[in-house]
Design a protein around this nucleic acid. Structure first.
Lengths: 314, 314
DNA sequence: CCCGTGTCTGCTCATGTGAGCAAGCACTAC
DNA sequence: GTAGTGCTTGCTCACATGAGCAGACACGGG
């Protein structure tokens, strides 16, 4: 578009959008036909001279969502715009996840949930009465070994309460010290039934952790910082339901994985609804691993993460 | 608008504006009638959920312009949006002034111009061939007493050249030391004829200076910093065509004014087109004085200045 | 209980708008 | 010169849209 056309387009856009004149009136005013006015408006929108934005905490990025769906074969994707305040990213994504969960049809009767900071936030933001009679199952262990006890259970309980349902917890450590202990625990009748219930869930809601010192596993005392360093050295990008994966979505350390209680990744891959909630720049790598390896069928994330996923050269 | 309606409005807005669906389709998708969709869209626009912006260096703020016209009884107003870069404000306003000048109808045959940094910029940005055969007259004295000679004359000459016309300069000091000298100079045949030509101009283009140490008068050596301090103490907010005025638009120091060569303020008030170009936060006070005292019939300014003028409680 | 008042809803209908088309135009290759 | 090519222009026509209206509905006062 050349200089003078552009100027004319601006003038047309001003009269049309700011003065609320009809294309006909604008045309008369500027001595051009209404068709030309229409065409100039189209071009102005395409060229970005006219920008139409939806400013709302819960607004979404539908174009990006479509790209994500197409690129990674997802059933659905929810992308929230980046708020100006970085602090707001997580709550926005959590809110979106909560909204999405409430809207899943058919309504999940049994919902498997993982735990962590992100899911805590989702539970907090979930609308009371989002469904009725849901059965919420904790899909990976998570009694904290230190002070911050109970958040793992709290997440599931909150989600269940708000959905007028019941929570089934998995009150055992996420990672055990000995494979034998893990095996023994899994043989326990009560634990086995929770695991079975978890495996039968019609939907899963989970997030991912970054492999690093800030990991909840370190925070909770399941792993030491050096353990995590080792995992990173082996290619770990982060964890999903307590299991550390590399960029290809494969288990990094099978010995460690053997000591990890909870739903297996393959069960997750086979799930009808595997809703993956992820937000923040630090999680781009894990997010990519999850998405490319088919661990989720639905992703709920922020715009920056979505773009990071899409920018990857295929 | 309550919570759930708002959420629905966002959803509607997304589908309509981002997915380019028709209101009918959106309605079908969300299970509401297309009329409701239309109404929600209207409300979303009103509530600012949907924002339509025109992003262009030469875009204008027509709503603000109208308010300025109505409030101050101006013939016209041009308000340019604030660019993100502060450095850009002056050029944008100058460009707008140049565009406006080129578009004035009937085409001014004789144009009186003042001088200063702002007008220099306007002259620089004026499109070559903006008119033909214009007579440009310098309306206030302005041979600089120091190194930066010639800019005063340069402004008028550039405007004349680009309009394929002729410039008539007023190559005398802006402010003289003695009233007698000023009277003597005004009696000079050549000077008198320039003044007469200036008084007969069909349009004036001028800016304003701030009363302060950064004033061009101090810069050019006509006034000392202490002179300006005195003026400020007497209530001066700035100068217009070399004459210092207070917030009511009145001459602050009549003795000084008597020593100032050039067009009088009353001649400016009586002009058909008195185009006042002003930009920058520092000039809000002068701008207010000019606008409220009827010194201009047209104002060309930036958004911040315009808002400052309008925010004033009447 | 009923009526007035204000808000919301779905409708008709006139008007606004964009897709698609054919003619016009500039520009190029031969 | 002329035919070919791609772009712009004004148009027809079908569709999309908003103003305006009447009925439905909720709410509160008498």
């Amino acid at each position: 578009m050349d200089e003078s056309t552009e100027l004319l387009a601006v003038r047309v856009a001003e009269l049309y959008y700011e003065e609320n004149k009809t294309q006909d009136e604008v045309g008369a005013l500027l001595g051009i036909t209404r068709w030309k006015v229409g065409r100039l408006l189209t071009r102005a929108r395409e060229a970005g001279i006219v920008r139409i934005e939806i400013i709302h905490p819960r607004a979404r990025r539908l174009d990006v969502e479509r790209q994500l769906r197409d690129r990674f074969g997802l059933k659905d994707a929810v992308v929230v715009p980046l708020p100006t305040d970085d602090e707001e990213v997580n709550p926005r994504v959590a809110q979106a996840a909560a909204d999405y969960l409430a809207a899943v049809r058919p309504v999940p009767r049994t919902l498997g949930v993982s735990w962590g900071r992100t899911l805590d936030e989702v539970a907090r933001l979930l609308a009371p009465g989002w469904t009725v009679g849901v059965q919420v199952v904790q899909i990976n262990g998570g009694v904290s070994l230190n002070s911050k006890q109970g958040t793992a259970a709290q997440t599931a309980v909150t989600i269940a309460q708000k959905g007028h349902g019941q929570a089934t917890l998995l009150p055992i450590p996420a990672i055990l010290e000995q494979v034998e202990t893990k095996r023994a625990i899994e043989r326990d009748r009560a634990v086995a039934s929770v695991r079975a219930l978890g495996a039968s869930a019609s939907a899963y809601l989970y997030s991912a952790g970054v492999a690093g010192a800030s990991s909840v596993h370190v925070d909770s005392g399941y792993l030491s910082e050096s353990d995590v360093d080792d995992l990173v050295a082996k290619g770990a990008v982060g964890d999903v339901v307590g299991r550390y994966i590399n960029s290809a979505g494969k288990i990094v350390d099978s010995a460690l994985d053997e000591r990890t209680v909870g739903l297996g990744l393959d069960e997750l891959r086979a799930a009808e609804h595997a809703i993956f909630v992820v937000a923040g720049d630090a999680k781009h790598d894990v997010a990519r691993a999850v998405v490319t390896s088919g661990l989720c069928s639905v992703i709920v994330t922020d715009e920056a993460t979505a773009h990071a996923l899409l920018e990857e050269t295929t």
